[in-house]
Nucleic acid binder design. Structure first.
Length: 348
DNA sequence: AAGCCGGGGGA
DNA sequence: TCCCCAGGCTT
């Protein structure tokens, strides 16, 4: 048996039962694929179930507001996926009459659908012979064929795509593509794979060369940036607060948060009061208290956010405040959601 | 080509 | 602590 035959045989026996498995409905496959971009299956499943229940068809998603979609996406990260998901749903509804394109190129034109996702939808839904190359496939191919190119280099990307195309099973592309990804996720795992139990071990180059531990190769990641966030948690006499929407580029675009003062280092009480004063607030101050004396460190893959929540009590609100219950209906970063939970526990 | 974009889980 | 996850977009 050759490579693809082994993969297909292994898949037949070992495939997991997943909510979207077996479906060829492009809406459901597209939804699952976007949710699973850079996301573990176990983390994505509850979101997939929420989305198909809330929006049974692409038109339902298209008719929702972006804020509603972001709220359902809250906690999953990479929020551009949610914004693009919503935009793509509108494209399908308005430009394609609610019917997904059935070609690789057509799918690639949808927002948030790149090479991988277009290949996945085209092959799984329409049996289009396009190879998928995700993180699992890179690992399986790099090890089995002993490829020394970095998977995130331009040359590596081209090489692996070509190799994937050469070894795929054109006639059974639907199962083969899902099979090689499943094989990477279950058998050929990143760390300490059980090669003794692997049906492909005899012909695996990395195993014979004792290089399973250092393949696939990957170029160094970007370094983390440290930032200091000071959130202004207004609390008026009638228990209302203020949220504002993040605009422009950067993390959490279009999500909501408390008014923010960013500093280059941790602010003291007087330091915060000075920066707060510079905002030219016209509120009637009662008190300013630091909620968390020790900064909350919110760690993202590329930023460490050292965060202080300053509780600013006021008399009346000239601006349009909201209640803390209402705050829970806004799409917010996990950092804010966590604070809201602990704040309400200690103050109410 | 390189940087940016989240959050969580495993070792 | 580091690495990875059914990647894509922007510059």
């Amino acid at each position: 048996m050759n490579f693809s035959e082994e993969i297909l045989k292994w898949y037949q026996v070992n495939k997991r039962s997943l909510p979207w498995r077996g479906s060829t409905d492009p809406y459901k496959i597209w939804l699952s694929e976007v949710i699973l971009q850079q996301t573990r299956v176990v983390q994505g499943i509850p979101y997939y179930l929420k989305f198909v229940e809330t929006y049974p068809e692409v038109g339902d998603l298209a008719r929702a507001s972006e804020a509603e979609v972001l709220k359902l996406w809250q906690g999953l990260g990479y929020y551009s996926r949610a914004r693009n998901l919503h935009a793509a749903a509108k494209m399908v509804s308005e430009q394609y009459g609610g019917v997904f394109p059935e070609t690789y190129g057509g799918l690639l034109g949808l927002k948030g659908v790149g090479d991988y996702t277009a290949s996945a939808i085209a092959s799984i839904c329409f049996n289009v012979p396009e190879p998928v190359v995700d993180g699992n496939v890179y690992r399986v191919l790099a090890r089995y064929f002993g490829v020394d190119l970095a998977i995130n280099s331009t040359e590596g990307v081209k090489y692996f795509k070509k190799l994937a195309r050469e070894v795929m099973d054109v006639g059974r592309i639907r199962d083969y593509n899902q099979g090689i990804m499943e094989f990477g996720a279950i058998q050929c795992v990143p760390k300490s794979p059980d090669c003794e139990a692997c049906p492909l071990s005899e012909s695996c180059v990395a195993l014979q060369m004792k290089r399973v531990g250092d393949l696939p190769l990957k170029l160094k990641k970007t370094k983390v940036r440290s930032r200091y966030f000071n959130y202004i948690v207004f609390v008026s006499k009638d228990g209302r607060t203020v949220l504002e929407q993040r605009k422009g580029k950067g993390i959490w675009e279009n999500l909501w948060q408390f008014p923010l003062i960013e500093s280059t280092q941790k602010l003291s009480q007087s330091g915060f009061e000075r920066r707060f004063g510079e905002l030219n607030q016209t509120v009637d101050l009662v008190s300013i208290d630091l909620f968390n004396p020790e900064a909350i460190v919110h760690k993202l893959s590329h930023q460490h956010l050292y965060t202080s929540f300053w509780v600013v009590r006021t008399k009346e609100f000239p601006m349009d405040g909201i209640s803390f219950e209402e705050a829970d209906t806004y799409p917010v970063p996990v950092l804010i959601a966590d604070f809201l939970r602990s704040f309400k526990k200690s103050y109410f």
